[in-house]
Amino acid sequence: MSEAPSVVLVTGVSRFLGGHLAARLAADPSIERVLGVDTTPPSREMRRRMGRAEFVRVDIRNPLIGKVISTAKVDTVVHASLSGNPAQSGGRSMMMEMNVIGTMQLLAACQRSDTVRRLVVKSTSAVYGASRRDPATFTETTEPKAIPPGGYAKDAVEIEGYVRSFSRRRPDIPVTTLRFVNLIGPRIDTSFVRYFSLPVVPVVLGYDARVQLLHEEDAVAVLERAAAEDLPGVFNVGAAGVLMLSQAIRRAGRISLPVPQPAVPLIGRFTRRARLVDFSPEQLRLLNFGRVVDTTKLQNEFGFTPRWTTVQAFDDFVAGRNLRPVIDPATFGRAQDVALAVARALPSGT
């Protein structure tokens, strides 16, 4: 029997997902209090949006978080602060600290608490890795063929390990782990969004990845549903359908720059130095093989069907960001007219 939440704690409210989730929960009158936690205060725009949600500036790596949970009698914890964007989290090692150590502290506080009765953890489909030996789609039970070597994906694998041991120790608290695919949309800022915003997009020569995306608003809606009901388990969260990387680049009107495999780390370093895109090595592997997850369990057991398909989400991102095509699509139409005119002008009967 799942009870409606009355006091909800959301981590990572300064970023898109946490902030918008807190705003959505604050708009629900049946929820008594919404506490937003982060190390940096949310932007003015976000704070306005969050309405009656309270912001607590606390580092989740600090045991103080336990005090926040116990004094506010928090009953639902949504851990949405897992980040794959080092630029936003103050560097790569800081990101790892926040992701892994922060989760450990938060779980420790939840384990101690006698008020918490629901936990939602945002994870990532990066835990499946990406290799040539992987099946076309990953289900929640697929064993990864190549354990992610480091970075964000390894953080997520470790976090999921801690979450599993937490649920062993506190079997009375239902835990929902959500493995999100790459998010996209007109407002969210991720490495992937920045990547597609480059005018010339580097791709790996000879490889074309399958890309599955999720619209930012579907991501918020999934978290909201997980916070409101007891839906224990691990769920893949992704939109229906697939775009090829080359296709996505063309849809956005960008130009792809094929880079031979050995030069890929070099380009990766360059875009990081130039503060364009910060892709960790395992995200670069995604550009080789791509990753598609099976969302049957999300639809049947979790009871959620994303409103946007991958293609629609991507088009919404392109339209919302006002990405101007580098080559105007009308050029192609004109080129065809010219070719037709030439064909017509050719002497017939040859």
């Binding site: 076309a136 789609t137 074309d208 399958r210 359908g241 697939v242 775009l243 090829m244 080359s246 296709q247 996505a248 680049i249 063309r250 849809r251 791509g290 598609v292 293609v311 699509p329 192609f332």
Partner: peptide, 10 residues
């Protein structure tokens, strides 16, 4: 312009 569809297997 990328106006074509691929299935989950690519």
């Amino acid at each position: 312009t990328g106006r074509y569809t691929v299935d989950d297997f690519g």
